[in-house]
Amino acid sequence: MENNRRNFLKFAGVTVLGLGSLSLLDGLTSDDVIASAGQTSAEEIYKKGANALTAKRWGMVVDTRIITAAICRKMENACHQTHNVPDHANKRHEIKWIWDTEYKHAFPEKTDLFLAERFEHLPIPVFCNHCANPPCVQACPTQATFQRADGLVLMDFHRCIGCRFCMAACPYGSRSFNFRDPREAIKNENPEFPTRMKGVVEKCNFCAERLAVGKEPACVEASDGALIFGDLEDPQSEIRKLLKENYAIRRKQNLGTNPSVYYIV
């Protein structure tokens, strides 16, 4: 908190001294500034407890043999409820952390004229790939998007300036921008996870806040075994065993982003 306040004061000082026009903006939207200063930082949200789950590099396996539309709905609801993802009526303002799409959209470079029938309309869940080489982290001018040592690509909602450079950089369309106040469109607010304000980007965080208290990601819990989460660097982990025994693909592997999400087909 102390650190927060100091940063805020430093920021306010520089703003006032710096650009007159910007201090004017400060005045106009002071509610937001004060609100953000009083909120929890990324460090606090993801602070690890004694029973935290840890890994060298977190990864996910999606078993498309198990996936159904009903499971996709359950996972989406679990994720969006856990993370206070708003439900806007206007499609342009849409926020989504996890959703399902057709094979041809999830893997546009792997589409085929004579695709196995099962894949024609199979819902494929898509979300942030937590790339080992993330273009969004490279693009972010303020390090509001950053990569943790365990591979998670996370966001500091209070540092994000809303330039949306990360959204242009992401080759998977995994990021959403708050084009308007999200708080008006949250039905059952989860007090365990912060709500966001308008003008910042957000995306799937592999439930870093749940891992910190020893819980698996919400989508994994709701997936009826279709999603398997674990340590990609640990040869004994369940996901490594699955990958050893089954052929799996990743989205747009050719781009060199090295995604941490595998799809068993």
Binding site: V14, G18, L22, D32, Q138, P141, I161, F165, V201
Partner: peptide, 21 residues
């Protein structure tokens, strides 16, 4: 174009040479 224009100076407070911005 910024979603949070009053945070513009974050670009200077957290200089990030790997960002083209």
């Amino acid at each position: 174009d910024l979603g949070q224009p009053m945070r513009l100076l974050n670009v200077l407070l957290y200089p990030t040479p790997h960002s083209m911005l």
